[in-house]
Simulated assay, not measured.
Amino acid sequence: MEAGPRDTAPGGEQLSTDGPEASADGVIADGPTAEELAAQDEGQEVEVELRPQRRLRIWQLAPIVMLAAIGSLMFAFPLFFEFGGAVVAMLGLLISSCAAGWGMMAARRVGYTLPGLPPRGSGRWPDWRVVGAYVVVVAAVAVLAVWRVARLR
């Protein structure tokens, strides 16, 4: 048994020994031919993303949704049915806020951003008007919620 590259085919015929240095332009013709390239160019190419899209999975969403549902029910029942009082409503508001923050952090890890804000890692700064609008909306919702719970007494 011999070691090293083979120079004869199994039938005994001599194999070609032309390498890159033996060809005219130093390139081995082992790729597609010009006819194959032309036929490939005529057809439609479909680009497929090899990496899976980054999205929130069910195991990430389920605890957030359950926590938000429990918190919103704890907040709503004292307000509508006068059952439980201000302490239960405030605890429900706290749980709902925690679920919202948890959801925002999970979404940020996946790469989602709030509308109007630049994507994470883009190097751009957010517009101060958009950030100001978000701060005003969140502050207004928090003030109205605390005001409504305070009126339960």
Rank of each mutant, 00 (worst) to 15 (best):
R109D: 14
T113S: 14
V48P: 00
M90Q: 07
M1L: 03
P119M: 11
D7G: 09
R51G: 12
Q53H: 13
G103W: 03
A142V: 14
V149I: 15
V88S: 02
L152P: 00
S96G: 08
A106K: 03
L50S: 08
V48G: 02
A106L: 11
E47K: 08
Y134L: 10
E47C: 07
A89I: 02
L114P: 02
E47S: 11
A62T: 09
R108L: 08
V135Y: 09
R57I: 06
G12R: 08
G4R: 04
G116Y: 10
L56F: 15
V143I: 15
G132R: 05
D7H: 15
A39Y: 01
M66I: 15
E82R: 10
M104N: 09
P118S: 15
W128D: 08
A24G: 09
Y112P: 00
W128F: 09
G12S: 14
V130Y: 08
F75Y: 15
P20G: 15
A107R: 04
G116T: 09
W125G: 03
G84I: 02
G84T: 04
D25F: 10
L56A: 13
G43K: 07
W147C: 04
G84D: 05
G31R: 00
T113M: 07
M1Q: 02
A39R: 01
G92R: 00
V27H: 06
V48D: 04
P10H: 10
S122Y: 08
A3M: 07
L15F: 07
R55P: 00
P118H: 12
A107C: 06
M90P: 00
A24C: 05
L61K: 12
M66K: 06
L152Y: 07
V65W: 13
P126R: 05
E13Y: 14
G101Y: 07
Q60Y: 01
P119I: 09
E13P: 00
A69T: 14
W59A: 06
S97N: 15
A100P: 00
G111L: 04
A145L: 13
W147S: 13
V27F: 05
V87M: 12
L93Q: 03
R153L: 02
A100F: 03
E36I: 01
G103R: 01
V137G: 12
A139Y: 04
G103V: 06
E47M: 10
G43E: 11
F75P: 00
S72Y: 13
S72V: 14
R55H: 12
V146W: 14
W147I: 07
D7Q: 10
D7C: 05
E49R: 05
A133F: 07
G11V: 03
E42Y: 02
A62H: 02
V136I: 14
G132D: 08
L56R: 10
V149W: 00
A76V: 13
A76E: 07
A142F: 15
D30N: 02
R148G: 01
A145R: 05
V131T: 14
M74T: 04
I64G: 00
V48A: 03
D41G: 01
A39L: 02
E21W: 14
V27Q: 10
P78V: 04
C98E: 03
E45L: 04
G132K: 03
